[in-house]
């Protein structure tokens, strides 16, 4: 049982910091029905981190980690960017490798774990920013879809390279002035969700993270479909309030605005994914 790696030996417990004891005792393990409604009470799998005050990316992290149906056997792969500052603080096995190779690393991990643990479900989830997913890592992202890797890819789209100081990215909207696009971006936002569908993903969603319960639903669907069918892709709007010049309490307002336009909820479900989702609903897991 992988959950044993969080159990503390009684003889040493009195020396262990409370936050680690809480992970064993108050986090939700072994319960696929866990979800965002645990957040007000349970110990989260995310510890204190260094993202900016009011950053919606941290909200996304909270919802996703609270929604993993099988955290005790989930591996998360990330890439370079703001997100990579959060990963040391996630109470799971996670990987930061290089900028843009996250889906390749995840492929290797997933295939090896299937070979090493044929009787166990080990979910592999990629969490990376838009630069990593759409620009520098597009090759690895799409190729993992072509190969039908059974992994869930989640892109945090803040429409900018935030960690390096606000440069234009492939997902920046046309005309927007950022560093490296001093005359405004010359070409349209890359429709990554559409590329994901065309490249063979079985479950694809575009949305903002303005609704925690909705995020929980799509994360669970994406993971269950990836487990049984093939690649799934979530494209989440997590605006960089710093780079677009908003205040620290403006993130939710910004996301709710964009819910009405370019991040209007969009969901694609392949016929095979439909079956999995129907089955999981019957089992009461969705």
């Amino acid at each position: 049982m992988s959950i044993n790696i969080f159990k503390i030996n009684e003889e040493l417990k009195e020396f262990i910091p409370q936050e680690v004891i809480d992970l064993e005792e108050k986090a939700t393990w072994g319960n696929p029905k866990r979800g965002v409604m645990d957040l007000p009470y349970a110990k989260e799998l995310l510890e204190e981190h260094s993202l900016c005050a009011g950053c919606p990316e941290s909200m996304a992290f909270r919802y996703i980690l609270a929604s993993l149906p099988n955290p005790e056997d989930t591996i998360i792969v990330n890439s370079t960017g703001c997100t990579s500052l959060v990963f040391p603080h996630i109470a799971l096995h996670t990987v930061h490798s290089l900028f843009g190779n996250q889906n390749a690393v995840a492929t290797g991990i997933k295939r090896t774990l299937e070979w090493r643990f044929p009787d166990k479900v080990k979910d592999v989830v990629v969490l990376a920013g838009d630069g990593a997913t759409v620009d520098i890592g597009l090759d690895c992202t799409l190729q993992s879809f072509f190969r039908q890797e059974k992994i869930t890819t989640i892109c945090f789209d803040n429409e900018v390279y935030a960690n390096t100081g606000g440069q234009e990215s492939g997902t920046t909207v046309q005309g927007h002035v950022f560093k490296m696009a001093p005359k405004g971006k010359q070409w349209p936002k890359v429709p990554m969700w559409q590329l994901a569908i065309d490249s063979g993903c079985h479950y694809v969603v575009r949305m903002s993270v303005s609704s925690p319960k909705k995020v929980e639903q799509v994360v669970k669907k994406a993971i269950y479909v990836a487990r049984e069918v093939g690649p799934t892709y979530l494209h989440l709007y997590t605006p960089c309030i710093l780079e677009i010049g908003l205040n620290s309490d403006d993130a939710l307002m910004e996301m709710r605005d964009k819910d009405k336009e370019r991040f209007k909820f969009f969901e694609y479900v392949s016929p095979q994914a439909e079956e999995v989702i129907a089955k999981k609903k019957e089992e009461g897991l969705l």
């Binding site: 159990k7 503390i8 030996n9």
Partner: peptide, 13 residues
């Protein structure tokens, strides 16, 4: 040795 992940770890603790 902190975590009780196998029998040896328990004994070592």
């Amino acid at each position: 040795v902190i975590y009780a992940w196998n029998e040896e770890a328990k004994e070592k603790a």
